[in-house]
């Protein structure tokens, strides 16, 4: 019963994200454009680009994930669906988890899948490309979950978008450090295992804690 409701909400959100206005397309376009802008800023030398590629790719992915966060709860909050979700048999914690999972599948996974192509543009060491893919797949769930908390906290605030980025960016420091660290280690020919494990630990810690905090914030928003 609860599982069916969870899956129904997950499928609904995913379908909305994929069919409605191209949220996913926008996120990927933003990711690609941000990465492409960097060579204009730091110069076209391959060594410089290859050296900074892990950081550029991770920062750009992080900003792209941030871009769509305000859509996580706001449409449902405005048209009243969120009240219905809160009243349904599904606990609000699991409802936020379903929404974050749908956000991850519609933004984090496409970002990770497109990243190898951008790694080639930036001349990243080919040994690091598999690690880049793995680190984004492991780390982006944490981005969606932490972002879910911030989105729930800022629901109904004035200027939600700016507020959201102010709240979320300091909390994104640990995933950024371990994600970019793993890719950099791999690019230097060192094993990225420790960074990937720590990144996984962050995601696993966020998995139970973030939906809980986000649900508490949503209850405040719904009054």
């Amino acid at each position: 019963m609860i599982l069916a409701a969870f899956l129904a909400l997950f499928r609904r959100d995913l379908r909305l994200a994929l069919r409605q206005g191209g949220d996913t397309g926008l996120v990927i376009a933003f990711f690609v454009l941000t990465v492409v802008l960097f060579p204009f800023g730091v110069g076209p030398e391959p060594e410089v680009l290859a050296r900074s590629a892990p950081g550029i790719l991770w920062v750009a992915a992080l900003l792209a994930a941030l871009l769509s966060l305000d859509r996580l709860f706001l449409p449902d909050y405005e048209d009243g669906s969120l009240d219905l979700i809160a009243l349904s048999s599904l606990p609000l914690e699991l409802a936020t988890l379903a929404k974050c999972a749908a956000h991850w599948v519609s933004t984090g996974v496409p970002l990770a899948l497109i990243s190898p192509a951008l790694a080639l543009i930036l001349d990243l060491d080919p040994r690091a490309i598999a690690t880049l893919l793995a680190s984004l797949l492991i780390g982006t769930p944490a981005l969606s979950l932490i972002g879910g908390v911030a989105a729930a906290l800022t629901l109904g605030a004035r200027r939600q978008g700016v507020l959201l980025s102010l709240l979320v960016l300091p909390l994104y420091v640990p995933p950024l450090i371990f994600g970019a660290g793993a890719v950099e280690a791999a690019a230097l020919g060192m094993p990225p295992r420790v960074d990937l494990l720590l990144l996984g630990a962050l995601t696993l810690a966020a998995l139970p804690l973030c939906p809980w905090a986000a649900a508490a914030a949503l209850r405040q928003a719904l009054g």
């Binding site: 709240l167 909390l171 450090i177 660290g181 914030a217």
Partner: peptide
């Protein structure tokens, strides 16, 4: 509303503070 939501954020922040500290040391 701001006060109640801020309370949740303060608790989220205090959980994150050691994690941030640890990861920055590592980095």
């Amino acid at each position: 509303r701001g006060g109640r939501v801020g309370s949740i954020l303060a608790l989220v922040g205090v959980v994150n503070l050691p994690i941030i500290k640890f990861s920055v040391d590592w980095w």
